[in-house]
């Protein structure tokens, strides 16, 4: 029991951070003492190994757990990114909206132009046909102060 306590104390002393100012000779002396004690008593050596393994495993488990958490977080982030359809839909919708907008504008402008051309053709045809067919409307009696309109100056205003 005494030996075990000594061994634990020794392990704690060895695992504790060595002060910078510590003499290198002290550490090697402790190591040599420990080695001698372990060689002298296999049970003591075994207990040392058990404690050291326990500490190592604990540290390893903690590290593995940390790494696992990081991997899971990365995978989740990658999955979110890989399945992200929002931006693709947004981009395709933007293209279709712009194209549809341009098409509608084009079509409406074209329809307006067709109607305007037809109207202008009608107006011009009527204007050129007018001299052949004199105005059917009854001649309006000029009111007081109003001059009779001159056909030659029609539409000049």
């Amino acid at each position: 029991m005494k030996r075990h306590l000594f061994a634990l104390g020794l392990v704690a002393a060895l695992s504790a951070p060595i002060p910078v100012a510590a003499d290198a000779g002290d550490a090697s002396a402790l190591r040599e003492t420990c080695t001698k004690a372990m060689n002298a008593d296999p049970g003591f050596a075994k207990s040392i190994v058990i404690v050291a393994e326990k500490n190592y495993r604990k540290a390893s488990y903690e590290q593995i757990e940390r790494e696992n958490k990081e991997i899971v977080a990365n995978e989740q982030q990658q999955e979110r990114f890989a399945k992200n359809e929002r931006h693709v839909i947004l981009a395709y919708a933007a293209m279709w909206v712009l194209a549809a907008g341009f098409l509608i504008m084009l079509w409406r402008r074209q329809q307006g132009l067709v109607a305007e051309i037809a109207q202008l053709h009608r107006d011009l045809a009527e204007a050129t046909a007018e001299p052949a067919a004199p105005a059917k409307a009854p001649a309006k009696k000029p009111e007081k102060g109003e001059t009779k309109p001159d056909p030659a100056t029609k539409g000049d205003d």
């Binding site: 074209q110 051309i117 053709h121 011009l124 009527e126 204007a127 539409g155 000049d156």
Partner: peptide, 27 residues
């Protein structure tokens, strides 16, 4: 091609308007 047709129609409208103005049909 559709837009070229539209541009030509716009020019035709301009020319018809000018003709209309010259003929005194349009104000």
């Amino acid at each position: 091609a559709a837009r070229i047709r539209g541009v030509r129609m716009e020019r035709e409208v301009r020319e018809l308007r000018e003709r209309g103005l010259d003929a005194g049909v349009l104000a």
